[in-house]
Simulated scan of single mutants.
Amino acid sequence: MNDSHHTDQPLFKGIADAVPGMLYIIELTGMKMVYANQKVLDLFGRTLEELSAMGPSLFDHVVYPPDRTRFDAHIVELLTSPVGHVAELSFRLLNHKGEPTWLRTRRTIFQWDNEGNPTHVISVSQDISAEIQLQEVNERIALERKRLKEEKELEVIRAVLSKQEEERDRIAESLHNGLGQLLYGAKLGLLALEPEPEQAFREKKTYALELLDESIIQTRRISHQLMPIVLNDFGLKAAIEDTYRKMNTDVNFSLQMTAGKKIAPQYIELAVFRIVQELVLNVGKHAAAKNCQIKVDIAEKHVNIHVSDDGKGMTNAQHSDGVGLRAIRDKVSLLKGQMDIYSQPGDTAISINIPYRSSPN
């Protein structure tokens, strides 16, 4: 075929120059450009003769290197496609200034030789650089909005957990300095009495002392639950162990903890402790279990909590409506974590995953 057979015709040239984009024809045998409208020539700052003379090296010069693999795959797809197939590709070409320009190109084979082999490809391209830039701006805006939303949610989490701890500290201090001291003083007052040796009085005194002893024990227990002093002084593992060791229960607790990182920020560590503490208390109070295994794995960017027991199990209603579990589920949700529950008689397991920022130990 004569490459200029159609392209020299005034009608073709008029249509090609009127196309709202770039139009060019590649002759496949020599991989050279045999026609290009003015918009293509303006993009590369060269004449058609110069572009044609470059032959196959043209694409080495003008295809943006990071897009070359996709460009070559696109050409292979086109050459092996059925008659009438139109292949589309968005990629970058280097303009006459060496700057990448985004194009959306549609190509099709429009001529074959006598043996049915494709000989000429016609391409129509549109400059979509402005569209891509707008898309990138929108993506940056979306990412910034997501970041601001996450920061705001994080502030809410901090505020909620901080308020809870402030309230716990206030109650603990009030119990310790108020009720606890008052009960202890009452006990000392009773011990100082020198009653006449009357059996009834002695029995009342003994009963009153027993009540006061129990009140003091309960006050200390509540204070311990409200103020995680061990957590602050000795760390998460010691605080969890301290929780179940001070429980009045026959459950045999065991703790396995792996920590390659230190949980950060600190309120996440406090939240993890509160969650494990609540799970341990639930097992001790309600599970009727003989054994309970606690596993805490502090990985690179998340904490895995797994608490299992061999108790009586939970009903579906307890899964959803139990006050303790609901409080844990709310806290896990606030922390963007995930909670799964499996329960049947003799085998109950609760698994929790909480993301966090890690810092070197």
Rank of each mutant, 00 (worst) to 15 (best):
L212D: 14
F110T: 07
N2S: 03
L183I: 13
G45Q: 12
A349P: 10
K152Y: 15
V124F: 08
K152I: 10
K262D: 09
D60P: 00
E27A: 04
M1F: 06
D42I: 09
K13F: 01
I217L: 08
L335S: 03
Q111A: 06
H224M: 08
K301Y: 08
I75R: 12
H96Y: 12
F91V: 02
N232P: 00
A259T: 13
K163M: 15
G189S: 08
E99W: 03
D169M: 13
L270S: 00
H286L: 08
A288R: 07
H5A: 09
S254Y: 02
I25H: 01
G21R: 04
V40C: 10
I305T: 09
G284A: 15
E150D: 15
K204S: 06
A287V: 07
R220A: 07
V332A: 00
A53T: 12
R147C: 01
I268F: 07
T80K: 07
N177W: 06
R106S: 10
L325S: 07
G260Y: 02
V307N: 08
N353H: 04
Q133E: 15
V156F: 08
V121F: 00
V121L: 01
A327V: 11
T119H: 01
L190C: 04
R70S: 15
E241H: 13
I216W: 03
E167T: 15
Q133T: 14
D60Y: 04
K237P: 10
P66Y: 10
M31W: 10
I109N: 02
